[in-house]
Amino acid sequence: MTVGADIKQCLATIKSIEAGLSSLAIHTNAEDEQRLYHRQMMVIEEIKQDLMKRIGEVEREEEQYKGF
């Protein structure tokens, strides 16, 4: 597998973590726990943005890895 594909796989996992935390935040009853999941979801969201930026760079540098 190429570097680009590796990063994209990692991005997919990050997205699944974000979705999982979001669903936990919705379904939990305890308010402080809700807040905690939400805050960590935001952190994951930032990581996701960084990774997407990096994927853009990799694709620009190495045209052959382009596409999803």
């Binding site: 590796d6 796989q9 990692c10 996992t13 990050i14 973590i17 999982g20 935390l21 936990l24």
Partner: peptide
């Protein structure tokens, strides 16, 4: 979720 986080962190 925890397992995925560990995997991503290692990646």
């Amino acid at each position: 979720i925890l397992a995925n986080m560990k995997k991503c962190q290692a990646d």
